[in-house]
Nucleic acid binder design. Sequence first.
DNA 1: GAATCAAAAATTGTCGACACTTTTAAACAA
DNA 2: TTGTTTAAAAGTGTCGACAATTTTTGATTC
Lengths: 230, 230
Amino acid sequence: MTSLIPSVSLARRNLAFEVVSSLRAEIISGKLEPGVSLAEPVLAKRFGFSRAPIREALIELESEGLVEFQATGRTRVRILVESDFLEIRDARVALESMGARRAAARWTSGDTAWIEVNLKAQVNASTLAELSRLDIDLHEYVMLRGDNKRVLTLWQSIRRQFEMCLAKLHRNQQSLAFEPRQITVSAHRRLLAALASGSPEKAAQTMAAHIEDSMEWAPMYNQGLDGAMA
Amino acid sequence: MTSLIPSVSLARRNLAFEVVSSLRAEIISGKLEPGVSLAEPVLAKRFGFSRAPIREALIELESEGLVEFQATGRTRVRILVESDFLEIRDARVALESMGARRAAARWTSGDTAWIEVNLKAQVNASTLAELSRLDIDLHEYVMLRGDNKRVLTLWQSIRRQFEMCLAKLHRNQQSLAFEPRQITVSAHRRLLAALASGSPEKAAQTMAAHIEDSMEWAPMYNQGLDGAMA
DNA sequence: GAATCAAAAATTGTCGACACTTTTAAACAA
DNA sequence: TTGTTTAAAAGTGTCGACAATTTTTGATTC
């Protein structure tokens, strides 16, 4: 289901592309934790390449916001704090409202069917990670249907940073003690209704409200930070 | 007045930084026209550097959307067509609505004063380029006051692509036969009123409507393309 | 044990080199 | 003139090297 991700930009299929894909996946999944050093010689040895493609990959990842350059020139996995989380929320609201507005204007019964399949899977999801995955897939589908490459690309960047936040929350699971499934599914049903209603404005508003609701746990975002200092 | 641009990201102050700044300015201003080749050895000779910093700069510029990699690996200044222009419009609406919403929530009389100085300059502007500059400065001020680094950074990227569009329009001036000054200034006065009204929602809506109005010339965007084929 | 200083190791920024591919130019034929 | 083939020029992707800087390590002192 993640195959619906389009190969945005990156027309070059070189070694740097491979490094970007690999590191991106590890950062998003939390396998590479925030703050971890990304020294070029180390990565070069690990991938079996020279430093050149590694450097190019790090530049790419920095512009995606997954990696940060320190004043000394050193690179590390980006550390996100609560204010970052709040920024991500508002960026999502801005971009996904527009995505929903545009998607609603071209919504078809086939789109409704796709969402319904996704929602059935959400109901049957057995782990929190699986539910998160399906949630993001649903939102990505709407963005794709919004049919605006720029808005989509900007959103992809924010989405990846959001996934970094999720990885952190999954690490300190105590932050998600409540039962999110029912809430998530019913919110998505309301969203679907708005998208299919034929009113772009309603779709945009419903999306904005949904994101704000679903990211309400922001205040507890930094709770478990102390023990996670890398 | 352009000094209000913050040094977003790019913590590294290396040769690539210099190349990015320089090429970016030339592309945005239209000095480097869309489609022009950006071969690494040529640029290396021109800047007096080796190819390494040039390559890094091109990667950066590609992620900003100012430059495009072709399937062959060659790089050229990005060519924007009307559909790109429409995408940019909606991206601006999404990001600047959010920027205005957040700016309105923390608006002060000092902010109103800043805008009023800008508007006086708009009234006295003698060239279309100067008016465009002041227009963008005003929008940037609102985005800065929105106080969200991510939304700001995403917007900067879109803004630069928008400036590329302006450069193209300035090349084929016949596209702007109407008198934009009165319209621009009065629209900005309405925007200022909304920002100062204390209603974030009203500010967001007014901004969205303003951008859609002000970019209404989209249909004529490709008029003069034939003669501008590089 | 904690702080200080010096040596060693690691890292970045930049360069030039080389194989391989693509583009351009020239020579030639119809 | 136009089209085709071939040789030359230019361009990209990748590598290893080296100086300069930063970080780490280890020895020494209080």
